[in-house]
Design a protein around this nucleic acid. Structure first.
Length: 423
DNA sequence: TCTGGGGTCCTAGGACCC
DNA sequence: TCTGGGGTCCTAGGACCC
């Protein structure tokens, strides 16, 4: 059986961790630029505020119901995430971290009975409430997890081990549950796929399951076929082998609070993003062989269909900020259009490989700037992030995002650590 | 007025090869 | 009139996820 642990209302739970006064109050977390709602406490969900809505559309409801809002604080969430994953790996030998708030794990038969204890221990160690779903495949574990979250007290299993926040889903119960579930609620079936299914008269999962596999293949391609198999209890997504598999791409992007047309400011934003991405590459001991810059207008309005990306291969794969910065400049020269009101900029590096492999290049790289980049990292590590920066990133203030309600970095900054005073 | 960011995987189509 | 067949590799773009 495969297990899935998922943190409940993760970002909200992180914020509440250091603000116990918010435990029974409605709390929501906003995306970058305080633009959208990206996490909601149960109280907020009950008010009918859906995931991802622009804040301005629900501003009135938020005020009326005294909802406590936070800007997103990813330093905090990442740190808490690490602690939760750590607590989980104390319990199971084989875990695969799937996202900041979820991990799959391998379940030995004898440990099924101890799941409630396991869950309690994780919550006790981290302060973050989690739910656990168990099933024969990853996709079904997702379903089980949703059930655990929604009605954790409902007994779904003949094994009788379900308790609050835990659900063990076996094939018999699954076939019963599937009758009333819509296809769109399944992991891997999104808007488009749902639409295709509806067009073909398939509305519930029972109907989907009854379809012939080759028909599903024709209708939805291999991805749909895999979902179909997983839902029938045939595992096609194995548990990840290693947690340190190298990433395929590194991205840094940000929307501007207001639009920008000045090329210099745009360049300073791109310079910032390329520095971020290059630093991450060096940290992971990797180099990239393709560089893409993004500079586009708003997703909404007149410029939404304009292509805002430009990309180039890097003949010598690199993680050198200086080399990459130069390339970014060239790409921007081609991409820049003075008539576009830019709303977003970013950098993507792909074609990732370990640095050790790339060093046997036929061509020689200018190693002076290479070592300068590493020196830059050392200095920033010692004296604080961003102490040393490339000249091209100056003028940052002009494009910086809005972040008006960020909580302190309780766990990653000495200055912002929570202080407890005894009377 | 205001609308997130960082990823993965698959597919179709073009360039190129013999 | 009529213009090969079989492959690989790369890229852009779409769908989906949290």
């Amino acid at each position: 059986m495969i297990g899935l642990m998922d943190c409940n209302n993760f970002f909200v739970s992180c914020e509440r961790l250091f603000r116990p006064d918010l435990r029974n109050r409605p709390v929501a977390v906003l995306s970058s630029n305080d633009g959208c709602i990206v996490a909601r406490s149960q109280e907020v969900k009950d008010l009918g505020i859906s995931m991802g809505v622009p804040y301005f559309q629900v501003q009135d409801i938020c005020k009326k119901n005294d909802i406590v809002l936070f800007s997103s604080n990813f330093q905090l969430y990442r740190d808490i995430s690490k602690r939760v994953m750590c607590a989980l790996s104390d319990e199971f030998d084989h875990c695969e971290v799937y996202s900041v708030d979820e991990a799959f794990f391998d379940l030995k038969e004898d440990s099924v009975l101890k799941l409630e204890e396991v869950r309690r221990r994780i919550i006790q160690k981290t302060g973050i409430p989690v739910s656990i779903g168990i099933a024969p495949t990853k996709t079904l574990a997702k379903v089980a997890n949703n059930i655990a979250k929604k009605n954790g007290r409902l007994t779904m299993s003949t094994m009788g081990v379900d308790g609050e926040g835990v659900c063990v889903l076996e094939m018999d119960e699954w076939r019963t549950v599937a009758k009333n579930m819509s296809c769109g609620s399944i992991w891997g079936i999104g808007r488009q796929t749902s639409a295709v299914l509806t067009q073909n008269g398939i509305n519930t999962i029972s109907e989907f399951l009854a379809l012939d596999r080759s028909y599903v293949r024709r209708l939805l391609g291999v991805v749909g076929e895999r979902v179909h198999m997983e839902l029938q209890g045939v595992s096609v997504y194995a548990l990840g082998e290693l947690s340190d598999i190298e990433q395929e791409s590194y991205t840094s992007t940000r929307s501007f609070h207001s639009t920008i047309q000045d090329k210099g400011i745009l360049m300073s934003a791109l310079a910032h993003h390329v520095s971020e991405v290059a630093e991450k590459l060096r940290n992971d001991g990797c180099v990239g062989s393709r560089l893409t810059i993004i500079a586009k207008g708003s997703r909404f309005g007149d410029f939404s269909h304009r292509d805002g990306t430009m990309s180039t291969p890097l003949i010598i794969p690199t993680n050198d900020t200086f080399v990459l910065m130069k390339e970014v400049g060239h790409l921007l020269d081609t991409l820049y259009d003075a008539t576009v009101p830019y709303k977003k900029a970013g950098v993507v590096i792909s074609g990732i490989e370990p640095q050790a492999m790339a060093e046997n290049s036929l061509f020689t790289e200018d190693t002076r700037t290479q070592s300068l980049s590493f020196l830059e990292d050392e200095i920033n590590k010692k004296f604080g992030r961003g102490v040393l920066r490339h000249g091209a990133t100056l003028g940052e203030k002009k494009w910086q995002e809005r972040k008006e309600r960020k909580s302190p970095n309780y766990t990653t900054s000495w200055q912002e650590m929570a202080v407890v005073k005894a009377k």
